[in-house]
């Protein structure tokens, strides 16, 4: 196990997959000569050449579509969209082409592309650079959505996504590229389905994904230390498909659930997990599930207001105390 930053883990996955398969290409804005906005492709342009590590014009819909078209012939493109806010521009190609081509061609074509993009609220990036779009991608049949909460997942999810025959959207976080964590020395393929228990517990399940896993873990530490409440934290690294069994298993054990999401509540992960709890294990509940979500506003620039727009560990603690009647 070596400790490394999340960006280094993503870079390592790129490097290994490019070395492993000549059909793997990497493309996006500044991924080549400039080494990537978040250094996720640093040095790969020099190593694999400009035709496999492609600097594209600022044409998100068309370069994403270029990768998708190439994938019809067996190419495995890793497409970096510099910010998830720009991925709106590529939704046509992602939703209309990549996600549907296998189905509407009667199984004749497939689009094994990986689309990586950082989203989330970082440091005063303002309304147009702070989107959280995972809920949009989760609603697209034919597309898989995964989202890493640590370097190990970031590395292993990308490796698995490259080798998956479905289009995979990897939702990264602008704030987490310097997050450090252990990554196996040997090759590691993280499953694209399922969930992980990040902290076992008995009293209440906190469901998180990506950055909110960290808020859940912080809250769990404080709830244990200050209130003697034993929280289980479940990391939903796979958002589509969501791990129905894993969600039900944990709630069946703890009988209480709080879902924590950095995105706005409407039509989000919280809503979806609550629906799954309703469908799978409603009668196991001792209290109605709660969700801790962002306020439904565009993200403001002002730092204080920005922080007020999204959840944090304090809000998770408050939700758990409320749920337990304390």
């Amino acid at each position: 196990m070596a400790e490394m930053a999340l960006w280094e883990a993503v870079r390592r996955a790129h490097d290994e997959e490019l070395a492993n398969d000549p059909m793997v290409i990497v493309m996006g804005e500044d991924v080549g000569l400039a080494g990537g906005t978040y250094k996720a492709t640093l040095g790969l342009y020099e190593k694999y050449g400009p035709e496999r590590v492609i600097d594209t014009p600022i044409s998100e819909n068309s370069f994403t579509g270029l990768g998708i078209g190439a994938s019809f012939l067996g190419v495995r493109p890793i497409i970096e969209i510099m910010s998830v806010n720009f991925a709106w521009l590529a939704l046509d190609q992602i939703a209309n082409t990549a996600a549907k081509v296998r189905y509407m061609s009667g199984g004749q074509l497939q689009a094994p592309v990986v689309i990586r993009s950082p989203g989330g609220v970082a440091h005063q990036l303002g309304a147009q650079h702070s989107a959280r779009m995972e809920k949009v991608f989760m609603g697209i049949a034919g597309l898989r959505v995964v989202t890493p909460s640590n370097p190990r997942q970031a590395y292993g999810l990308l490796k698995s996504a490259v080798r998956c025959d479905d289009p995979v959207f990897i939702n990264e976080h602008e704030y987490m590229y310097n997050l450090r964590g252990e990554v196996p020395d040997e090759e590691y393929f993280h499953p694209l389905e399922g969930s992980e228990v990040a902290r076992p517990g008995r009293d209440v399940t906190l469901f998180g994904y990506n950055i909110s896993v960290h808020w859940c873990l912080q809250a769990a530490e404080r709830l244990a230390a200050e209130h003697g409440i034993d929280c289980e934290v479940v990391d939903l690294y796979a958002l589509s498909p969501l791990d129905r069994e894993g969600i039900a298993r944990s709630v069946t054990r703890t009988h209480r659930a709080v879902i924590v999401e950095e995105a706005e509540a409407p039509c989000g992960v919280g809503a979806e997990v609550m629906a799954i709890i309703d469908e799978e294990c409603f009668y196991e509940l001792d209290a109605p599930p709660l969700r801790v979500s962002a306020r439904n506003v565009p993200i403001p620039y002002n730092r204080t207001l920005e922080r007020a727009a999204i959840p944090n560990a304090d809000e998770v603690v408050a939700a758990v105390l409320h749920l337990l009647g304390k």
Partner: peptide, 17 residues
Amino acid sequence: YAIVGETFPVAIGVAYW
């Protein structure tokens, strides 16, 4: 393809390969 303009990126992707 039934989205007007959807075919251009797909075509250049095939051509790139």
